[in-house]
Design a protein around this nucleic acid. Structure first.
Length: 180
DNA sequence: CAAATGATTGTTACA
DNA sequence: TGTAACAATCATTTG
């Protein structure tokens, strides 16, 4: 029964997603195995994480967590706290997903707000990351006018200290329609 | 010993 | 437009 955990999940899940697949055909791709299901070409960088490992990009910013992930982070603690016996990532994932759908838009609002913020920072990181890539190009053939492309190193370079954003409970500008 | 997997949904980037 | 892949987490698993 060594393969009990993995194998059963792989199969069982396939059918579980059925509900969503109705809404969107995309869901048909079974999240369980989203790895190189149909590698168009090796040229495509989008491979599995390990494959990506070959190309270590320490500067490459990771994708910002979606609202669901933000909620999950908190949910994980709670879930584990009430279920100290359960520590499987899949357990929290399922439970979190279920609850997530159970939540109202208003409740997801704060999470989405945070996710939006993450996205904003992600954009900045990308700006910085792009610049690095340019620098990484040491064997440049012609960088003469290219240097002009460099933006003024104001604050976008890195340390941008804008701690004035104090949105915590202030995001309650959402129209409160009585949920049930 | 170390890397990978599994599961959730959302988001992102490319063809 | 659509699809494929990845984002965190961490016990369990495989090599």
């Amino acid at each position: 029964m060594q393969a009990s955990s993995r194998m059963k999940n792989a199969k069982g899940k396939g059918a579980a997603r059925g509900s969503r697949e109705s809404l969107k055909p995309v869901d048909d791709r079974k999240v369980g195995k989203r790895k190189a299901a149909a590698p168009i070409d090796k040229s495509s960088k989008r491979m599995t994480k390990k494959e990506r490992n070959a190309k270590k990009d320490p500067n490459k910013p990771k994708r910002p967590p979606s609202a669901f992930f933000v909620f999950l982070e908190e949910f994980r603690k709670t879930f584990k706290k009430e279920n100290p016996n359960v520590t499987a990532v899949s357990a929290v994932g399922k439970a979190g997903g279920e609850k997530w759908k159970s939540m109202s838009a208003a409740e997801k609002a704060p999470y989405e707000a945070k996710a939006a913020k993450r996205k904003d920072e992600y954009g900045k990181l990308m700006n910085d990351y792009n610049r690095k890539q340019e620098s990484a190009n040491d064997d440049v053939d012609d960088e003469s006018d290219k240097s002009k492309s460099e933006v003024d190193d104001d604050e976008a370079t890195g340390e941008e200290v804008h701690d004035d954003e104090e949105e915590e409970d202030d995001e309650a500008d959402e129209e409160d329609e009585d949920d049930d």
